[in-house]
């Protein structure tokens, strides 16, 4: 689905990079732990997270995450949005919980954008 559809389904608000509305999103990776996103997130995924600091943008950048959806109504600070804009990374905010946002994406057929690991 397109980023535009993601925004619609999550009832979200896009904070930057409007020109990327038609970008295709196929996979989702969700975590508040950037360590995990760096270790298990796959390139090309949408990141759903409740962590709104600058490191969420840096993590997305280095891990080739293509967009970020911030949940629980949390808004990143202006300098974080500026950083995302600089990197050409669309970021959106929505009121849903991490669980609900993931559920909606799953329901609409998006795949898991993270490596599977057996419990140790």
């Amino acid at each position: 689905m397109t980023l535009n559809e993601v925004i619609h389904i999550l009832d979200g608000e896009l904070l930057c990079c409007d020109e990327k509305m038609s970008m295709e999103i196929t996979d989702v990776c969700a975590s508040d732990l950037m360590s995990d996103v760096l270790a298990f997130g796959t390139a090309g995924s949408l990141l759903i997270t409740g962590l709104t600091n600058a490191q969420s943008v840096n993590t997305a950048d280095v891990a080739d995450i293509v967009a970020i959806a911030y949940v629980r109504g949390k808004r990143p600070a202006d300098d974080v949005v500026r950083l995302a804009k600089e990197r050409g990374l669309p970021v959106l905010v929505c009121a849903l919980s991490l669980y609900e946002a993931c559920g909606k994406m799953y329901e609409h057929g998006l795949a898991a954008g993270s490596e599977i690991r057996e419990p140790q």
Binding site: L33, M34, S35, L38, L51, N53, S56, T59
Partner: peptide, 12 residues
């Protein structure tokens, strides 16, 4: 709280 400290960095 900043999203780090899982002890995953060096192995990664």
């Amino acid at each position: 709280e900043m999203g780090f400290g899982a002890g995953m960095g060096l192995p990664n």
